[in-house]
């Protein structure tokens, strides 16, 4: 058996295969130092948060490991038990570093779950509205417009005033706040994709509506939605923190960053800043990191920038 290539030299000089879109996106993403820094920061925070039980010096919610003698120590002080608290301690002698990592875990989980469900819900409704048009479109878009004319914090506040605080309730409130944003974006994208050739081609092949919708239209609508998803996670986390700070979000058994900041607020007046300031910095870093990544993704995934 002889190799085909040895017989046909033309094939050897073939152009290299076109770069796959995924690689192009990764390559372009990597060219921005700021975005890489954001990604690095984000990964560090996420990994640290999810490894919290193994890397924190103390389990902040195990009452046996807390000592009231250690309460409100300034950053860097060494506690009664010989443990040094680099970020200080709160009113109950809890190590702030440990509390922040545990808090990040809760904030991230809430943000991720809420945004993912909101994305799926908004995506489905938006695409259905765009693809079928007519009455369904009108109803969905009326709802979306109505929804978006109220500021998110107000909608969430109304819902939580009614539902009461709790983990499920805040996730539900965040989903209700965010689905409309995703639905609008999904509809707009799907509308512009609907008339493209590949959809016509799929139609002329006699594929079923569901298959065209989910097999062909959906993958092509994803890039702008992924950008929105990233940025919305940041705003979900910020909104959850705000609501928890106001005392209508998570219960005190789920100490997210917002609750930590809220607990520290009473001590700010007496100059014991660290209980509020450090969780706030953690929150800020998380949000900035997500936004840096999201901004770069927006530039890289924008079809107008593809050469």
């Amino acid at each position: 058996m002889t190799d085909v290539n040895t017989l046909n030299p033309d094939l050897l000089e073939k152009k290299p295969a076109p770069e796959r879109p995924v690689w192009r996106v990764i390559r372009e993403f990597r060219s921005s130092h700021l975005a890489m820094f954001g990604l690095f920061l984000l990964l560090t925070i996420v990994i640290a948060a999810f490894l919290a039980p193994w890397i924190t010096p103390q389990n902040p919610y195990d009452l046996r490991s807390l000592s009231i003698m250690d309460s409100r120590l300034a950053p860097g002080e060494v506690g009664f038990s010989g443990l040094s608290f680099w970020l200080g301690t709160d009113g109950q002698g809890r190590d702030m570093f440990s509390a922040i990592l545990y808090g990040l875990r809760i904030s991230l989980t809430v943000g991720l779950i809420a945004c993912t469900v909101a994305l799926l819900l908004g995506l489905t409704l938006g695409m259905v509205a765009a693809y079928f048009g007519g009455r369904i479109d009108t109803i969905v878009m009326r709802l979306v417009d109505l929804h978006l004319s109220f500021p998110p914090i107000l909608v969430a506040l109304i819902l939580l005033a009614v539902l009461g605080r709790g983990l499920e309730n805040i996730i539900l409130a965040l989903i209700i706040v965010q689905w409309a944003t995703f639905a609008r974006m999904a509809r707009a994208t799907a509308l512009s994709e609907r008339n493209r050739e590949y959809v016509e081609a799929a139609k002329s092949l006699g594929l079923s509506r569901t298959r065209i919708l989910f097999g062909h239209l959906l993958p092509n609508c994803m890039p702008p939605l992924m950008v929105l998803y990233t940025v919305e996670i940041a705003s979900a986390i910020a909104l959850e923190a705000t609501l928890s700070f106001l005392g209508v979000g998570l219960p005190s058994t789920q100490p997210s960053l917002g609750l930590l900041i809220s607990n520290g607020f009473q001590f700010v007046m007496s100059g014991q800043y660290w209980i509020s300031v450090f969780p706030g910095i953690a929150l800020l870093l998380l949000i900035v990191a997500i936004n840096l990544v999201g901004d770069r993704l927006r530039d890289v995934l924008n079809p107008r920038n593809i050469t």
């Binding site: 940041a234 910020a238 923190a241 705000t242 700070f245 106001l246 917002g258 900041i261 607020f265 700010v268 509020s276 300031v277 706030g280 929150l283 800020l284 949000i287 900035v288 936004n291």
Partner: peptide
């Protein structure tokens, strides 16, 4: 980026 309530505390 900075959440409103934390700005207030600062």
């Amino acid at each position: 980026s900075v959440p409103n309530f934390w700005q207030a505390i600062m």
